[in-house]
Write a protein that binds this DNA or RNA. Structure first.
Length: 268
DNA sequence: TCTGACCTGCGA
DNA sequence: TCGCAGGTCAGA
């Protein structure tokens, strides 16, 4: 589920409601989701602490709770809800953060692929590539990366050490709008194509953030409403439907063991 | 570089 | 009942 736009939406909504509020009680219902800390320690370090900051790096959600730094990776189905009844599967709520004003933030994860860590200082994520919506992401460094690698374009976009935050939905959409085949090798990309590719990476992700993410099956915002970006998808999950540009049926292939959707005519 | 494993729910 | 799903990681 959650790629950059969905995690960004969650971060913004948690900030809007819970920032500077004190966490009075933490419940860990599924301790095995905690990767570097025991449930007891997680609770001890966060109870009584104010939520100082909520940010995002790639697909990771970062909190500052007093002097501790919880980090969440939502896997395929992780999500946060402000009210239990807004959760799509309340029976799969693994963490509960009860705040001093009486509100609670619930972490739900049906498939339990999510992971949670607790750090004593802000984590650095040396393994992650550039933030595509930051000033550090430039056409020049994208061209350098493309030259450096020798992989297909779909795999390039999905590899978090190149660009952080892009998953299967947005990789498909970016390649379609860039008119680049998912099977092309990074080193074959021309100067002109790289320029379009660079522009579309930003524009696809920015649009999705503006639309509060894509609700394909599970994703809901913290407030329980659907994202709106699914109405803007051009190819993802549209196999057999006409390409919005040329009318050729969209094809589906498995590439790097992920479903890949593309127009065989428009994307070269 | 690729495959299977980790989980559960849902739709065909 | 089976195949598939937005992600990552270990191991071949």
């Amino acid at each position: 589920m959650p790629e950059l736009p969905e995690v960004e939406t969650i971060a913004r909504q948690i900030r809007a409601v819970f920032l500077e509020k004190t966490i009075v009680k933490v419940a860990v219902n599924t301790p095995r989701l905690l990767k570097n800390v025991s449930a007891t320690e997680f609770v001890r370090r966060l109870e009584g602490q104010p939520l100082r900051e909520v940010t995002r790096r790639g697909k990771f959600l970062l909190w500052q709770g007093g002097t501790a730094y919880p980090v969440f990776h939502l896997g395929m189905s992780g999500n946060f809800f402000r009210r239990r009844e807004q959760a799509t599967h309340p029976e799969h709520i693994h963490l509960e953060f009860h705040f001093a004003d009486g509100q609670t933030l619930f972490y739900q994860d049906v498939r339990k692929f999510g992971k949670i860590w607790l750090y004593e200082e802000p984590p650095k994520f040396p393994e992650l590539g550039v933030e595509p919506l930051s000033e550090n992401f430039s056409l020049n460094n994208l061209k350098k990366l493309l030259n450096l690698k020798n992989m297909n374009m779909k795999a390039f976009l999905m590899d978090q050490s190149n660009i952080a935050g892009i998953g299967n939905i947005y990789a498909n959409e970016i390649l379609f709008l860039s008119r680049i085949s998912p099977f092309r090798k990074t080193r074959e990309i021309t100067e002109k194509e790289a320029e379009v590719f660079f522009r579309e990476i930003r524009s696809v992700l920015e649009r999705a953030v503006r639309n509060f993410g894509t609700t394909y099956s599970d994703f809901r915002t913290v407030e329980g409403s659907d994202g709106q970006n699914q109405f803007f998808l051009q190819v993802y999950q549209k196999a057999g439907e006409p390409c919005p540009v040329c009318g050729t049926p969209i094809e589906k292939a498995v590439l790097n063991s992920r479903s890949t959707f593309y127009c065989p005519k428009c994307q070269r």
